[in-house]
Design a protein around this nucleic acid. Structure first.
Length: 246
DNA sequence: ACATTAATTATGT
DNA sequence: ACATAATTAATGT
C-alpha cells in the first residue's frame, strides 16, 4: 500500500533541501494536522542519514530523542547476556521509533540498527509531551502503533513457544512480506537486504537450518532467494506451511 | 526435531 | 584477492 519511500525519493532530503510539509501530512501521526503546524514541527526536527548497519541508538541509552523514519528500514535488536543477538521486530518507513516516553521509560528498551541506508528525523524527547498535548491525533495514533507492535511481539512469543522451526520461519517471512513486500514479476520480494543469519535471529534458530529450509522451499517453488535477497513466489503455500500440522 | 561442527563453494567489492 | 554469505554433509543432543 503505502510505498512511501518510493514516491518521495531519498535524494530529495540528502541534499540539505528544506523539508516539505507534504512528506509528513501523509503519515498517521500527523495526518490530522494543518500544513502550517507541520511546518512548525519540521523546524524543530533534525534530519540525518544513516549508512546500512548503522546504530541509531543503543539499548539502555538515555532516551533523549525520538525519531521518525522517512526512508529505509530499522531493525530493533536486543542482546542476550551471552552476546547473542535477537531481532525483536522491524520498523518500516513512515513510522515513529525510539518513543521511550510512550512506554513510560527514560532509556531505550532496545537497540535500533538500520537494515539498509536510511533517513530519519529526530526531535528532543522533551518535546514529546508538547506534541502529545498540542497536536490532535498524535497521541492516539502513536499509541495505536505501539499497540500493534506489542501485538506482533506477543504473536512471536506464542510462535516461539508452540510452533516448530519450519512454521516459525514461515511466519517470519510472511510478516516481512506484509510489512515490506515489494511486488515483482515472480512474487513478492523483501524490500531490504536480509541474510539467513538475520532470519535465524528473528526465529530463534541457526542460519544453517534457515538455509536448509529456504533451499527446500526453493525446490518446491515457494520462494526464490539469492544473496541477501528473498522473494516469496507462493504466499498462500507459505501460509499453509506456517500453520502447525498434526 | 533440531543444533553444532566443519569443510566447501559462491558472491560482491 | 579478499571478506562475507550460502550450501551441504556428518555428527551430536
Amino acid at each position: 500500500m503505502c510505498d512511501f519511500h518510493e514516491m518521495k525519493s531519498a535524494a530529495r532530503f540528502s541534499s540539505h533541501a528544506r523539508l516539505d510539509e507534504s512528506l509528513l501530512s501523509e503519515l498517521p501521526a500527523f495526518s490530522k494536522l494543518e500544513n502550517q503546524v507541520i511546518g512548525e514541527i519540521l523546524e524543530q526536527a533534525i534530519s540525518r542519514r544513516y549508512d546500512a548497519g548503522a546504530c541509531v541508538f543503543e539499548e539502555g541509552d538515555r532516551a533523549d530523542h525520538f525519531y521518525l523514519l522517512l526512508d529505509g528500514y530499522i531493525r530493533v535488536v536486543r542482546i542476550t547476556p551471552d552476546g547473542e543477538q535477537v531481532i525483536a521486530l522491524h520498523i518500516p518507513s513512515g513510522q515513529l521509533f525510539g518513543i521511550a516516553k510512550a512506554l513510560g521509560r527514560d532509556t531505550y528498551p532496545a537497540t535500533a540498527i538500520t537494515a539498509k541506508e536510511s533517513l530519519a528525523l529526530s526531535w528532543p524527547m522533551r518535546l514529546w509531551d508538547d506534541f502529545a498535548a498540542r497536536y490532535d491525533g498524535f497521541a492516539t495514533e502513536t499509541y495505536k502503533t505501539v499497540g500493534q507492535r506489542m501485538g506482533e511481539m506477543n504473536n512471536r512469543i506464542v510462535e516461539m513457544a508452540t510452533q516448530q522451526v519450519e512454521q516459525r520461519i514461515a511466519c517470519a517471512l510472511l510478516r516481512l512480506i506484509n510489512q515490506s513486500g515489494r511486488k515483482v514479476s515472480d512474487g513478492i520480494e523483501i524490500n531490504f537486504p536480509i541474510t539467513r543469519q538475520d532470519l535465524s535471529e528473528m526465529t530463534g534458530t541457526t542460519l544453517h537450518t534457515v538455509s536448509r529450509m529456504l533451499s527446500a522451499w526453493e525446490k518446491v517453488g515457494v520462494v526464490k532467494s539469492g544473496r541477501k535477497k528473498i522473494t516469496v513466489c507462493d504466499p498462500h503455500q507459505l501460509v499453509v506451511l506456517s500453520t502447525a500440522k498434526p
